[in-house]
């Protein structure tokens, strides 16, 4: 028994179509099921290969007190996080509420908005244009996000004894005027004896570059350090764990 809502091209297997020719379309069972089985095995093999080669470096256990950690979402949410960066202050609602609402409302209602029977791409410029624009936006935002993340990581040089010694010297020249270390130094700014246990090296770098990220009203000035010198100081401080 066939449902009468079935489109005309879906006839029961083996039935002779109105044109009088025998139906040459492949039957689902067994022909197409076999093709599906082959595709399924290929996909499974590909996933196992991917799982073997695409590993992520292990992370430390969650530490709710380490608010300096800069989290990144799973890659398929990156475009959305990038989008949110362009909406600041009260405008954030555009990114977190208005746009998602509009996009998902449009998606749900799409078949009722776009009601014409026309399916040829050349005859539906609006749908094609919007679809491509959406696709490009998602792809573009993802790329921008990945590029910015790579810049943000700053490719810090590895920590060596040499860098640590240089960092200690620089700290003694510039930082101890205000900051203290193991009881020695100024008291105009926070003690940094255990700074490495509280924040990571990237965050230390960012604070030296832009002290205002800690507080808008900080009295800390931009310290005249070269990139290499800053890396030395951040190496030294990142190792100050206890």
């Amino acid at each position: 028994m066939r449902p009468n809502t079935s489109p005309s091209h879906e006839r029961p297997a083996g039935a002779v179509p109105p044109s009088g020719h025998a139906d040459t379309r492949a039957p689902f069972y067994p022909n197409h099921l076999f093709v599906e089985g082959v595709v399924a095995l290929l996909v499974f093999a590909l996933l196992v290969i991917l799982a073997c080669f695409w590993q992520v470096p292990p992370e430390e256990m969650a530490d709710p007190s380490d608010s300096a950690y800069v989290p990144r979402p799973e890659w398929y949410f990156l475009f959305y996080f990038q989008l949110l960066k362009y909406f600041e202050g009260p405008l954030i609602l555009v990114g977190t509420f208005v746009l998602p609402l509009l996009i998902f409302a449009a998606l749900f209602l799409l078949p009722f908005i776009d009601r014409s029977e026309e399916t040829r791409p050349s005859k539906r410029p609006w749908a094609m244009g919007l679809g491509l624009a959406g696709l490009l936006a998602v792809a573009g935002l993802t790329v921008v996000s990945v590029v910015q993340d790579a810049e943000h990581r700053m490719d810090l040089p590895p920590i060596t004894e040499e860098h640590l010694a240089a960092g200690e010297d620089l700290f003694a020249r510039f930082c101890v005027l205000c900051h203290s270390m193991n009881g020695k130094g100024g008291f105009m700014a926070p003690d940094l004896s255990q700074i490495g246990a509280r924040v990571n090296r990237v965050y230390i770098e960012r604070v030296i570059l832009t002290p205002q990220i800690v507080s808008q009203t900080t009295i800390m000035s931009q310290i005249p350090l070269s990139d290499d010198e800053r890396h030395d100081v951040s190496a030294y401080l990142a190792r100050k764990k206890k």
């Binding site: 879906e10 379309r25 492949a26 689902f28 069972y29 197409h32 099921l33 595709v39």
Partner: peptide, 11 residues
């Protein structure tokens, strides 16, 4: 199981 696959959807 008893249906046919339209050619445009058959790889």
């Amino acid at each position: 199981a008893d249906h046919r696959i339209p050619d445009h959807a058959n790889p």
